[in-house]
Amino acid sequence: MKLNLRTILIIVIMITSLSVIYQNIVVQIGLLIISIFLLLIVQPSKHKLFRILHRLKNIAKIILTLMIFQVLFRRAGEIYWQWGIIQITSVGLNYGLVSSLRFFLIIIIAGLLFDIPYYDYLLAFHKWKIPYEISFLVASVIHFIPIFAQKFQRSNEALLLRGIDLKKLPIIKRFRAYLTLLFPILAGAISQVRYRAISLELRAFRLYNERTFLYEAKLRWFDYVIQVFIFTFFLLVLITL
């Protein structure tokens, strides 16, 4: 199913908001199931699923570590288990599980926005009457994320070509390598932004107050249906829980 970007953005905003509002495991699991379902029906592709799985695999260790810290060191509510200074409490367990489920949910739901052209964001924001400068800025940031990832990938390849596998370095040396990589990537990114600004100036960016677009991103009937459905769902959850 091919949805309009505005519909996808509404879905992402609503589901993420509900996840942030509720500190409840059942709600988080429910939202996670809905997100997985959406990911499988909204413009599904092998490539998209593979990227999300890869991302989840990379971040799973960090999320699980955070969960263990939350479970062990947040002390409030009923004590379920204690060993010396280590306690597992009802609040700690709830926080640990909810925050890790929330992380997974955000990664999965953000997958709906993968592979959407930068131009579509401009069209969507234009329809929402967001000032062009702001929509251009937001769209530029979104456009910049894959470029940044690509630069990191390129540096990682340069390391591999010198026989350095980051995954095989001991943790402290790996941290040193990341720092070495990060600095030129950031500096390169800033310098690229500067060139982009010059390029905009050369094309007389915002010389005219209004701009035209080559095509329009119109909502279709099922976009309206899904938008109504997601708003109703959002309100129902807010009222009932």
């Binding site: 540096s155 390391l159 070509l161």
Partner: peptide
């Protein structure tokens, strides 16, 4: 590599 920046790691 062909792109000069792609061969660089450090600052």
């Amino acid at each position: 590599k062909q792109e000069s920046f792609a061969n660089i790691i450090a600052a």
